[in-house]
């Protein structure tokens, strides 16, 4: 089962430290951050053909902001990622509820779902580009494929994890199949769905980027690949900094929604999937 849910969403462990060392902790983290930046700068000076320093990278990002180029490329990539995520995750959440209506169908689907999870979906991108062209559609399909299986399997496992006694108890109150699905199965699967969504989000952006590397006219991936072809190393770095910021920001937003949706769970509940 574990390989089918397939991604780990780590949380920072509460450090078991005394309060008095907390200021030192902040200081040490700041020190490490500055140290990493200095290392980056040193490497950039040592091999300028391979590494663009932090300052030129930052200036390039600011350039892109000033000219407004950043808006159109971030927009293109976000549109692909969100469009694909909506389709993929949407189907991934809804279909297990249809499948679970029939135990026989569930038994048939399960091994196929697990096999398809094993297909490296990003490897399909050249084929999808052949089928759907180099525009937006092929990337949305790629992202949807990438995220669908993750969310589908997690939701499926979530539904399966519901205790039979909880379902019986609710049935005794007079709940029908639909009410049980809506109240018990839906809510019980939420922790699984959210963990899967958080695992799927970086992959959605990754998939959009791979699609753009291979062929595109716009987007962050296009910008990185284009800069690479021009041997413009600063451009490659700027593109990657933007991607990293986008992924971290999107995860922070999703995490906020996850906290709200799962407010009923204990704080220390493990939100990772195994």
């Amino acid at each position: 089962m574990s390989q089918s849910i397939s991604h780990i969403v780590p949380e920072i462990a509460e450090p078991q430290l005394r309060r008095s060392v907390m200021p030192w902790l902040a200081l040490a983290r700041g020190g490490v951050a500055i140290g990493l930046l200095l290392m980056w700068e040193a490497f950039a000076r040592w091999v300028p053909d391979l590494i663009a320093g932090p300052l030129p990278t930052l200036l390039r990002v600011m350039d892109l902001v000033r000219t407004g180029e950043i808006v159109s490329m971030v927009w293109a990539t976000t549109l692909e990622a969100i469009g694909g995520l909506l389709i993929g995750a949407g189907l991934g959440v809804v279909l297990p509820f249809v499948v679970q209506m029939s135990p026989r169908l569930s038994a048939v689907i399960e091994p196929f779902a697990k096999t398809t999870v094993g297909i490296p979906k990003l490897a399909l991108s050249p084929i999808l580009i052949m089928w759907f062209g180099i525009g937006l559609t092929s990337k949305i399909v790629l992202v949807a494929l990438m995220t669908f299986f993750l969310v589908f399997v997690a939701t499926f496992v979530g539904i399966r994890s519901v205790g039979p006694n909880l379902i019986r108890t609710v049935a005794i109150f007079g709940a029908g199949k639909l009410e049980i699905a809506r109240e018990v199965l839906w809510n019980s699967s939420q922790p699984f769905v959210w963990a899967a969504l958080r695992a799927a989000l970086p992959w959605a952006i990754n998939a959009a980027l791979v699609g753009e590397f291979l062929s595109a006219e716009n987007g962050i991936g296009y910008y990185i690949h284009h800069s690479y072809n021009l041997a413009d190393i600063t451009g490659v770095y700027a593109g990657m900094v933007i991607t990293a910021a986008l992924v971290l920001l999107a995860d922070a937003v999703l995490r906020l929604f996850q906290r709200r949706a799962l407010a009923w769970r204990p704080d220390n509940a493990d939100q990772t999937l195994h």
Partner: peptide, 13 residues
């Protein structure tokens, strides 16, 4: 007919 089982079976959400 009501039925109270050994587990409390409260809906955690």
């Amino acid at each position: 007919i009501g039925y109270i089982m050994q587990d409390d079976n409260l809906l955690p959400w």
